[in-house]
């Protein structure tokens, strides 16, 4: 991508806006003062937004990387002859599990394990596994039969076939699963504030409880931008993956 095209993408502008709000939300103080003359303080002050963002990002990243690694490994296992018997059960679990509302999973799991960030990560990880497994299995099974047969026919070992042929071909589908998983994780982690995790959702809940609308708006805007920015990064990654395959 040329410098000019990079410059023109919404990704850059959304990123800049997010960074600016994250670091200098106080510049908007006059706007908030005009809209909410009676509320003080106007800018959330119990923690810096940067601090909240880093905590939020850490939750999502740890859970997301974990879920991607374990989910893809599980999908590989059930699509090999050795794990074939588990294929149906894993598929059922992934499909049924996704009908569970993520917030219900979080609300049930976290108090059962204990409040705070660590249980939130575990809940996000477990729930995040489901779309990744589902997509990775679909992606691996979607490799055309003739391609798999040709790979065997030219003498690739099953390991070489997996890494050189099946995983690269399934990569866009697997990435789509990770994208869904991470989008859900960002939203669910926001609600994690109610179970003691520190996230960009914390100002929203504090604002709702103390009836301070500016806090709600600040948190909501940052959370929304964070989610949109992440999704845009995934879109870019997907684009890059497909371009590398000449598609």
């Amino acid at each position: 991508m040329s410098g000019r095209a990079w410059f023109a993408t919404p990704l850059l502008w959304v990123g800049l806006l997010f960074a600016a709000l994250l670091l200098r939300m106080d510049l908007l103080r006059p706007v908030f003062r005009w809209a909410f003359p009676e509320t003080t303080p106007l800018i959330y002050d119990r923690a810096s937004f940067l601090e909240l963002f880093v905590a939020h990002l850490t939750l999502v990243a740890v859970a997301g990387f974990g879920a991607a690694a374990v989910g893809v490994a599980l999908a590989i296992f059930v699509t090999r002859p050795a794990g074939g018997q588990f294929r149906t059960m894993v598929g059922t679990l992934a499909a049924v599990g996704q009908t569970f509302p993520p917030v219900a999973v979080l609300a049930v799991a976290v108090p059962a394990i204990g409040f705070g960030a660590r249980p939130t990560v575990i809940a996000l990880f477990v729930y995040g596994l489901l779309p990744i497994i589902e997509n990775a299995v679909a992606g691996l099974e979607g490799v055309p039969h003739d391609v798999r047969e040709a790979a065997d026919g030219v003498g690739l070992s099953s390991r070489q076939r997996l890494f050189a042929v099946e995983l690269p071909l399934a990569a866009p589908v697997i990435l789509a699963g990770i994208r869904v998983s991470v989008t859900i994780a960002i939203g669910t982690a926001t609600i994690g504030s109610t179970v003691g995790a520190l996230t960009l959702g914390t100002p929203i809940f504090d604002g709702l409880v103390a009836n301070k609308l500016p806090f709600v708006i600040e948190g909501a805007v940052l959370v929304a931008l964070f989610a949109i920015l992440t999704d845009m990064l995934f879109a870019r990654l997907d684009h890059w993956l497909r371009r590398r395959r000449g598609l």
């Binding site: 391609v147 040709a150 065997d152 026919g153 030219v154 003498g155 690269p168 071909l169 590398r244």
Partner: peptide
């Protein structure tokens, strides 16, 4: 089996070309 197959050429009706590899990469497989 892999050793045997690398010594024997194999071509099929639907070609089974690897869609994510270029023509040169495909030919260079073995």
């Amino acid at each position: 089996p892999e050793v045997l197959r690398r010594r024997i050429g194999y071509a099929i009706q639907s070609t089974g070309l690897f869609p994510h590899w270029t023509v040169a990469d495909n030919i260079a497989t073995v």
